[in-house]
Design a protein around this nucleic acid. Structure first.
Length: 489
RNA sequence: CGGGGCGUAGCUUAGCCCGGUAGAGCGCCUGCUUCGGGAGCAGGAGGUCGCAGGUUCAAAUCCUGUCGCCCCGACCA
């Protein structure tokens, strides 16, 4: 069946499209264990690019990497009341080791606040020891009922930043700063615009004073919480006795923050940019930026075009160049596969650029350059590749962000609408709806119950509407906040 | 954990009602011809029909149990 070659379309069934695409583009595969996934080289290559960029940003903002253990004594989790209530139901617990029943059961970390702050407590005596600005790259386990590749798996990879400060304001500043780092990363690397803001109490992290998040719009108009940053206040410090002597000689508890992004972002990248032909990866995150496809009829032509392709690849991708001057090139020299089939192969995998080199091009020392995002084709001389490719790649990066931003704006509603209209929207195509809220958690719960939509965040100033809503969309009472409503992943 | 569905080759599946030699498409391997948008022909490899019992001369097919997976709900980066 030739239909086997086509993906389901986004319009037909967005969910099927996503699942099929992740499998067929070889980002990931299902594992023998329910709810877990194998991240294949193409998907891991994207994650590695994400890690590298973020890690540089963390270092540039003064953080250091460390590693804390996978196993946490069960009693640690219970020390912070809200935290244990939030996480206990989804913990994997080790009861046996070496064939014996353990004296104290060990939780496989669902997140590492408890173990990290217990260690911080050991290391901090004076205000001079603060701040502590730590990050770790790790895997965590949460026993989810319903899983989806990248978006929600029982084990996932992430980074978790954990810091300790002398004052509340310093911790708050850190929380906001890292949210800003995430936003910058998502926009400039993933070309995924986000709305940042404060979570309501119902949606905040278990154990946090305040949670901020980055919310991105997927192509089905649902929101994806792509990253969170928490001001933990002194809750964990008090639970783990993380205190220090102040400049004045008094004793005080430290103020903590934690912040994280995960492999979920790979799913976000797919659902932000993918089309019915496959993935569209951004130039900054794709493992391969340009694929060269040689075209030939005879053996002589094959030898000549492949030779030219390899020479170009060596020139553009040489390891002797510094990273920022190196272009990630791949030559598709597979034999017995026609050029057309190779085009589909690389389009499915989202490679931003393709260079076709055939017998006709050899004499002219040129090739046909094709963009994955726009499908635009143009001839290009070999000798200008080095100068022009970085410009084209940056253009693609910029165009993808602009396109994603335009799409988000086209599905954003800021004018005042009735709650009935809101229900219709959420039952239909969905949207990001900015509206007034009276601040009552009961209203929030009722809307979730009736429409499955939730308050994604109380948006930061730069995302708020020019004219603030004055009344609550649901009750008509005076609005305390302007909030962003959407259905979410 | 409640409701629904499904387990047959690497993948998608036909066959099951009405028991009687396990079939197809895709993919894979070999060869020849092809090669500027998913190639054609010829040959070939690959299956204890999820597992365990039972009924029967005979079970993919009927019965019982069991395990696993998928979808819909409650929980979630």
């Amino acid at each position: 069946m030739s239909d086997d070659k086509k993906l389901p379309t986004r319009a037909e069934n967005f969910s099927d499209w996503y699942n099929e695409l992740v499998l067929r583009s070889e980002l990931a595969d299902y594992s023998p264990v329910r709810g877990c996934m194998v991240i294949r080289p193409h998907g891991y290559g994207v994650w590695e690019r994400m890690q590298r960029a973020l890690d540089d940003m963390f270092k540039a903002t003064g953080h250091v990497n460390a590693y804390f253990p996978l196993f946490i004594p069960e009693s640690f989790l219970s020390k912070e009341a809200e935290h244990v209530e939030g996480f206990a139901p989804e913990c994997a617990v080790v009861t046996h080791g070496g064939g014996k029943l353990l004296e104290e059961r060990l939780v496989v970390r669902p997140t590492s606040e408890t173990i990290i702050y217990s260690m911080f407590a050991k290391w901090v005596q004076s205000y001079r020891d603060l701040p502590l600005l730590y990050n770790q790259w790790a895997n965590v386990v949460r026993w989810e009922m319903r899983t989806r590749l990248f978006l929600r798996t029982m084990e996932f990879l992430w980074q978790e930043g954990h810091t300790a400060h002398v004052t509340h304001d310093e911790a708050e500043h850190e929380t906001r700063k890292m949210l800003g780092v995430y936003r910058t990363f998502m926009e400039s690397y993933m070309a995924m615009p986000v709305i940042t803001g404060l979570k309501t109490d119902a949606e905040k992290f278990a154990g946090a004073l305040r949670t901020y998040s980055c919310e991105a719009m997927m192509q089905d108009n649902k929101a994806l919480q792509a990253g969170t940053s928490h001001n933990l206040g002194q809750k964990f410090a008090k639970a783990f006795d993380l205190k220090f002597q102040t400049e004045q000689g008094t004793e005080a508890f430290a103020w903590n923050t934690s912040w994280g992004v995960s492999t979920r972002m790979v799913g976000g990248l797919v659902m932000t940019h993918g089309d019915d032909a496959g993935l569209r990866l951004t130039p900054k995150l794709t493992p391969i930026q340009i694929v060269i496809v040689p075209i030939y009829k005879t053996d002589d032509e094959r030898a000549a075009t492949i030779e030219a392709a390899k020479r170009i690849a060596d020139e553009l991708g040489s390891f002797t160049r510094p990273d920022h001057e190196r272009i990630r090139v791949h030559v598709d020299e597979r034999i017995g596969i026609k050029p057309g089939a190779k085009y589909y192969h690389w389009e499915l995998r989202g490679i931003p650029l393709r260079l076709e080199i055939g017998p006709r091009d050899l004499a002219a020392a040129s090739g046909m350059l094709v963009r994955r995002d726009t499908r635009e084709k143009r001839p290009i001389a070999w000798d200008v590749l080095r100068a022009e490719l970085p410009i084209v790649l940056q253009q693609i990066q910029d165009d993808m962000l602009a396109a994603a931003r335009a799409r988000m704006e086209a599905h954003t509603i800021r004018e005042r609408i009735s709650y009935d209209r809101f229900k219709e929207i959420m039952a239909g195509d969905g949207a990001f709806v900015y509206a007034g809220w009276n601040g009552d958690p009961a209203v929030e719960a009722r809307v979730k119950e009736e429409t499955k939509a939730t308050i994604r965040c109380i948006p930061d100033a730069e995302f708020r509407s020019a004219v603030a809503p004055t009344t609550c969309m649901v009750t008509g009472e005076p609005a305390k906040f302007e909030v962003l409503w959407a259905r979410s992943y």
